[in-house]
């Protein structure tokens, strides 16, 4: 039980007559990458929002490290160790790359209420921020305005901001979205090593990446988890083939 870093218990969410989440119970264990796949409109984003705090479930619970966080805000969940990346980059585009990771480092430090001292002069924040940039390979771009980054670099920066939080778990919403084959391969390699630091709940459309990375896969269709299992189990599952993979292959 205590192995579950993230756990949802019977999460249900309806929008009118549409059941976007139907009694979803999933978990994320230490050291693993758990991928959630499913066709468009299956309710993956709705699920992510409920785990991260943007959306309250109608019923059910979200647990983080065994603690019920269902009533907590997004910010409170982040402080409890949830590191999230967005499908569509949510970065401060007017700011430099370094400033974006500094924001993460400051959030992790929990000390934004300093009005007088210069943030660039805070060595511990800078070291933390630059270490994250170094890991994703954006150190040379640190003084560039974020809006000038390429799409792929923005994806890397998304990951870097999450790294500065040193979270207990990552929740990544389509980190590969819009990356070319090369970028996708690089990021796959990076995430492969990242699971040792903290487990990753990964929502992804790129099946090559999912099959290469996932320890477990859950398949979400019309708001329900229709199967959870290893890569091989999912590949050979008849329901999954029919509902999802069949359409693609």
């Amino acid at each position: 039980m205590t192995d579950n870093i993230i756990e949802t218990r019977g999460i249900t969410k309806s929008f009118g007559s549409l059941k976007a989440s139907d009694d979803i119970s999933i978990d994320l264990r230490a050291g693993e990458i758990h991928a959630i796949i499913g066709p468009n409109g299956a309710g993956k984003s709705t699920l992510i929002h409920q785990i991260c705090g943007g959306l309250a479930p109608d019923a059910g619970q979200v647990l983080l490290g065994g603690q019920d966080v269902t009533a907590l805000t997004t910010a409170a969940r982040a402080r409890k160790g949830l590191g999230r990346t967005f499908q569509i980059s949510a970065l401060a585009m007017e700011d430099s790359v370094l400033e974006n990771v500094l924001l993460g480092a400051m959030g992790a430090s929990g000390r934004p209420w300093r009005f007088w001292q210069a943030i660039m002069g805070d060595r511990s924040l800078r070291e933390r921020a630059e270490a994250a940039l170094e890991r994703v390979g954006l150190m040379d771009q640190r003084h560039i305005r974020t809006s000038a980054l390429s799409h792929g670099q923005r994806r890397q920066l998304e990951v870097a901001v999450a790294l500065t939080l040193d979270p207990r778990a990552f929740v990544m919403d389509e980190p590969m979205a819009g990356l070319g084959a090369e970028g996708s391969k690089n990021l796959t390699g990076f995430l492969d090593g990242l699971r040792a630091q903290a487990p990753i709940l990964l929502v992804e459309h790129d099946m090559d990446a999912v099959f290469a990375l996932a320890d477990r896969i859950s398949v979400l269709v019309y708001g329900r988890i229709i199967a959870t299992g290893s890569v091989d189990e999912i590949r050979t599952n008849a329901d999954v083939r029919e509902a999802y993979l069949g359409e693609e292959a």
Partner: peptide
Amino acid sequence: SPFGLALNAARQVPVRVQTV
């Protein structure tokens, strides 16, 4: 200052500020 950086980000992408 740290506050200024956070405020500046809160104007541009409030959701990012929440997730840190």
